[in-house]
Amino acid sequence: MNPEDLKYSKTHEWIRVKDDSVTIGITQHAQEALGDITFIELPQTGQKISKRGECGVIESVKAASDIYSPLSGEIKAVNDALTTAPEAINNDPYGEGWLFELSNIDPEELKELMDKEQYDKFLETEQ
């Protein structure tokens, strides 16, 4: 997957828009900051979540961190493979390491997300 084609949040999630749903994961920057990921708790399929709402937990050798949804919607699918192989997030954060899919999203919320260039500039100001 090409990170150039994605949208990004200030909480370091990437968003791939496809028709009326989106796929969400954490960015390369986020997985590097966390280090080796050892455990993940994903939301439940069918669960309704709000923008910036907690929807899971990700644990690494360095820290535990909540996962926040960058958009409101309903959980359409989760990447169950991560429960037994959470290291996929480290190995391929933009592909096999995706976290969950949302449907019933608000298209207006997409306008608040950053493109790759804006996200890279955001990372520079955050350091």
Rank of each mutant, 00 (worst) to 15 (best):
M1A: 11
N2T: 04
L6S: 05
L6P: 06
K7F: 15
S9W: 00
K10A: 07
T11S: 15
E13M: 03
E13Q: 11
W14Y: 12
V17P: 01
I24M: 00
G25E: 10
G25R: 04
G25K: 05
Q31I: 12
A33G: 10
G35H: 05
D36F: 05
D36A: 02
T38F: 11
I40L: 11
E41L: 03
E41I: 03
L42E: 00
Q47L: 11
S50C: 14
E54P: 11
G56Y: 00
V57L: 14
S60Y: 03
V61R: 11
K62M: 09
A64K: 14
S65V: 04
D66R: 10
D66Q: 06
I67Q: 07
L71I: 04
G73I: 07
I75M: 00
K76E: 10
K76R: 08
A77C: 08
A77Q: 14
V78C: 03
D80Y: 13
A81P: 13
A85Y: 09
P86H: 14
A88G: 15
N90S: 04
N91H: 10
D92W: 02
L99S: 09
E101T: 10
L102K: 01
N104Y: 15
D106V: 13
P107T: 04
E108P: 02
L113P: 05
Q118K: 12
E126I: 10
Q127T: 15
